[in-house]
């Protein structure tokens, strides 16, 4: 990620330290992860210690400090999905992709995350791939859905 893009985001928030989290969110959505140089730049320009930037980047779920795969798979582990068998869906996704939640496969095809609730409880168990909701998932349907993403 080039530093000018980071600077533009920082400038938008007038370099205010209190906007730290908002700035990191924008970098995350722009670049899909937070590279070390970006964090260092934010720390310097906002005059916020690097220790705090690091803590925030690892504290909040929205942030990733490692590159993401081409497709982001989110399996909902909300309570409603859980009682409707989300664990079986997750087991199957792990099986099919060979990765655990929080990981990205070596081909950078999929990144897998578990999320707490997507608020589509009526459709549970729910899986989201690149923002598209796949509802009423069964382990078998999971594999079919994943196959659509190269």
């Amino acid at each position: 990620m080039d530093i000018e893009r980071v600077d533009r985001i920082i400038d938008k928030h007038r370099g205010e330290a209190r906007a730290l989290i908002q700035i990191l969110l924008e970098i995350q959505s722009d670049n899909r992860w937070l590279p070390k140089e970006a964090l260092t730049r934010v720390s310097e320009r906002l005059q916020v210690p690097m220790t705090r930037v690091q803590h925030i980047a690892t504290f909040y779920k929205a942030f990733s400090t490692v590159p993401k795969g081409r497709h982001e798979v989110h399996v909902c582990m909300g309570t409603a999905c859980h009682v409707r068998g989300a664990q079986r869906v997750l087991d199957k996704v792990q099986d099919a992709t060979g990765i655990q939640p929080g990981e990205t496969d070596s081909d950078l095809r999929f990144s897998l995350e578990i999320v707490n609730c997507l608020g589509c409880c009526a459709l549970g168990p729910v899986m989201e791939i690149d923002g598209k909701t796949h509802g009423r998932m069964s382990p078998a349907a999971t594999v079919e859905a994943l196959n659509d993403y190269e």
């Binding site: 210690p49 690097m50 220790t51 690091q54 803590h55 504290f59």
Partner: peptide, 21 residues
């Protein structure tokens, strides 16, 4: 100096040094 800080949260929270500092 802020050479050492926390990273992560919950059961995985730990201390971490900023190598440069």
């Amino acid at each position: 100096l802020n050479a050492v800080g926390f990273v992560s949260r919950g059961a995985t929270r730990e201390i971490s040094f900023v190598p440069e500092i």
